[in-house]
């Protein structure tokens, strides 16, 4: 069973989360549900600092033993920090997708884009429906 989806952040339909950290920045990662589907994560390709991305464009790659999956940016903006820890320990995404397994921080082009994302309740509902 996946962990509950925290209410302090927003969610994309591609299973990313974005947490508003103030001053027009967010921290993002993939959801616990996503890591559960991927199982054993063995490699994370982080974006370069300064990379500019559009909302829901691929910005990083997560690989399990058998699969390669794009990670989409929940907002448009610029990458200002990445979680270097994941280069040595990609399994942290499996262990703590909502916490220590964060992927990047971005400076948003337009904070209003957060409104395009789901809240925890709706995201929880969506993954419940996917299972049927």
């Amino acid at each position: 069973m996946s962990k509950p989806n925290p209410a302090d952040r927003k969610y994309s339909k591609e299973h990313e989360w974005a947490m508003d950290e103030g001053a027009g920045t967010i921290r993002m990662g993939i959801t616990d549900h996503a890591q559960e589907l991927l199982t054993d994560i063995v490699f994370v390709e982080l974006p370069a600092i300064g990379k500019k991305v559009k909302q829901m464009e691929p910005m990083a790659v997560v690989e399990s033993v058998k699969s390669v999956s794009d990670v989409f940016s929940p907002v448009s903006g610029e990458v200002i920090e990445v979680n270097k820890e994941l280069e040595e320990h990609p399994e942290v995404v499996n262990e703590d997708a909502f916490g220590k397994g964060w992927i990047a921080k971005l400076k948003m082009d337009d904070p209003a884009e957060l409104n395009n994302l789901m809240d925890a309740a709706r995201y929880t509902e969506m993954i419940k429906e996917e299972k049927h």
């Binding site: 199982t39 054993d40 063995v42 033993v65 058998k66």
Partner: peptide, 9 residues
């Protein structure tokens, strides 16, 4: 079956 629990285990 591609995996039961996880590939590494």
């Amino acid at each position: 079956p591609v995996q039961y629990s996880n590939v590494i285990e």
